[in-house]
Design a protein around this nucleic acid. Structure first.
Length: 477
DNA sequence: GGTCAATTGAC
DNA sequence: TCAATTGAC
């Protein structure tokens, strides 16, 4: 068969365990395509950090394909139709996307191509279980994680084993006139901020594998306890690779189980696999609640008296709240495009419950600055922390950044890493610099209010305000 | 409709 | 201890 087939790559920028690529390669010479989609340009088009990651991902994948990756910008149906016309391709293969816009787009394109007598083949390349295949006995979707994962997922048929790299034959054709270069895609922002992020990460399919191997070999044994301590680097940090598909959840699922098949690692492995379960649960929720990227899942929260205060949001964004663990987290985010999981919960709770800002302000900032920005996880997690989500943290659970800092960063290693201005402050005061005696501050080279801000709010007071607002909400709905 | 259980806390 | 909600089955 020498009629070419098109593989439309999206969030699956890898060769291994790529069902669309694998099965397309069995059908004929392949034309691999990536399209910068202008048809879904809404507030959740990839943010700056995500586009930066995408730039490097495409560069790396193009090298793996010996320069054969074709880049376009435009409406996918137009691009694909033209390419079919130019090359005589008879089929289009892709791996499914699950965000509401993408689901709608793909089903329209599928219908249009089929009407034009073009075959369309779609596969699951980014989830362990399809969201429509997991439901309760009565057919309605789960709302609570534990039964979703234990009964819904783990009792369902196991995910397929990962596929090997395909035997690829690339279709050799003249470059089409619509094709553009990686530079012309302009995925890197003008702001030099991205350079630091690029330096911080090795962005390729091989790098994702190295990370998984290193994680299972060195980090997994300490995962159970270590994952809560932001200074410890005990987590996998695979999330950004998962987002653009340099690695698949199936590869992680099977490889980690195979490597951790030793006594003593059972609990750590279960906890780790459960985190993949949370990713599944987020996609599951988004699939069944497409409005949750904007609207409170719990509608009672529609009447919550959020404050709309750009200045407060700016303090938070820039890491100038005066609470070291919060500020360190926000600076980690800015410098690396990443933030440790526990710290994400702390900064989320602070913005929503102490500053009383709407969770969407946080979701939008994370969306723009996280290299692992994932619409499902981001929406579900912000709703969780705000208390309006499915299976959410109870409203009265308000994290205290001081006690949390003392508990999970007792010697201040994490704080010092991202707040060098507090580097010389003794551990005793590292989470409460405003309590340090004048002499201690002086010795550490700190001038409160100048080199480091005083706390912008009173934890006790704001906590009780939030509790009051929530209680009011409860009475009047 | 009764029973059981519930990621990641604070005072 | 809080203090009682919500979902799953």
């Amino acid at each position: 068969m020498n009629t070419p087939v098109i593989v439309w790559l999206r969030h699956d920028l890898r060769l291994r365990d790529n069902p669309a690529l694998f099965y397309a390669a069995q059908q004929g010479p392949v034309i691999p395509v990536f399209i910068d989609d202008t048809s879904v340009a809404d507030e959740w088009s990839p943010g700056a950090a995500s586009r930066c990651w995408l730039h490097h991902s495409l560069d790396s994948l193009n090298q793996q394909l010996s320069g054969g990756l074709k880049l376009f910008r435009g409406e996918p149906l137009d691009v694909l139709s033209k390419l079919i016309e130019q090359t005589g391709a008879r089929a289009v293969f892709w791996n499914r996307c699950y965000t509401p816009q993408a689901v709608r787009r793909d089903s329209l394109i599928k219908r249009a191509l089929k009407n034009a007598a073009i075959e369309v083949h779609s596969y699951n390349g980014s989830l362990l279980w399809e969201p429509w295949e997991v439901s309760k006995g009565d057919g309605t979707p789960y709302k609570v994680f534990t039964p979703f994962f234990r009964n819904g997922c783990l009792n369902a048929p196991l995910p397929d084993a990962p596929l090997p790299s395909p035997q690829l034959r690339l279709f050799s054709a003249q470059d089409s006139t619509d094709q553009i270069s990686l530079q012309q895609l302009r995925l890197l922002p003008d702001h030099p901020w991205y350079e630091r992020i690029s330096e911080h990460w090795e962005i390729s399919e091989d790098a994702a594998w190295k990370r998984l191997q290193q994680f299972t070999a060195e980090r997994l044994q300490h995962y159970q306890k270590g994952r809560d301590f932001p200074s410890m680097e005990a987590t996998s940090t695979l999330s950004p690779y998962l987002q653009w598909g340099q690695i698949s959840p199936r590869q992680i699922w099977y490889y980690s189980q195979q490597q951790a098949n030793k006594p003593g690692l059972e609990d750590a492995l279960d906890t780790f696999l459960k985190e993949l379960g949370w990713r599944e649960f987020s996609y599951y929720q988004l699939y069944h609640n497409p409005g949750m990227t904007r609207e409170n899942l719990n509608q009672r929260f529609n009447h919550f008296p959020w404050r709309n205060d750009a200045d407060r949001c700016r303090d938070w964004q820039q890491g100038r709240t005066g609470f070291p663990v919060i500020d360190a987290g926000m600076r980690e985010l800015w410098q690396t495009g990443y933030m440790h999981n526990r710290v994400r919960m702390l900064v989320g709770s602070f913005l929503v419950k102490n500053q009383l800002q709407h969770w969407l302000h946080g979701a939008r900032w994370f969306w723009d600055t996280l290299v692992d920005a994932d619409l499902a996880s981001n929406s579900a997690s912000w709703q969780w922390v705000a208390g309006c989500g499915t299976d959410a943290a109870p409203y009265f659970r308000i994290f205290n950044p001081v006690t949390q800092g003392q508990k999970f960063d007792p010697d201040g290693t994490y704080v010092r890493r991202y707040l060098p201005e507090l580097k010389k402050l003794p551990s005793r005061y590292i989470h409460t610099p405003w309590e340090a005696p004048e002499a201690v501050l002086k010795a550490a080279g700190i001038v409160m209010g100048t080199t480091y801000p005083n706390p912008i709010l009173d934890l006790k007071e704001t906590r009780s305000q939030a509790l009051q607002a929530f209680a009011h909400l409860k009475e009047h709905s």
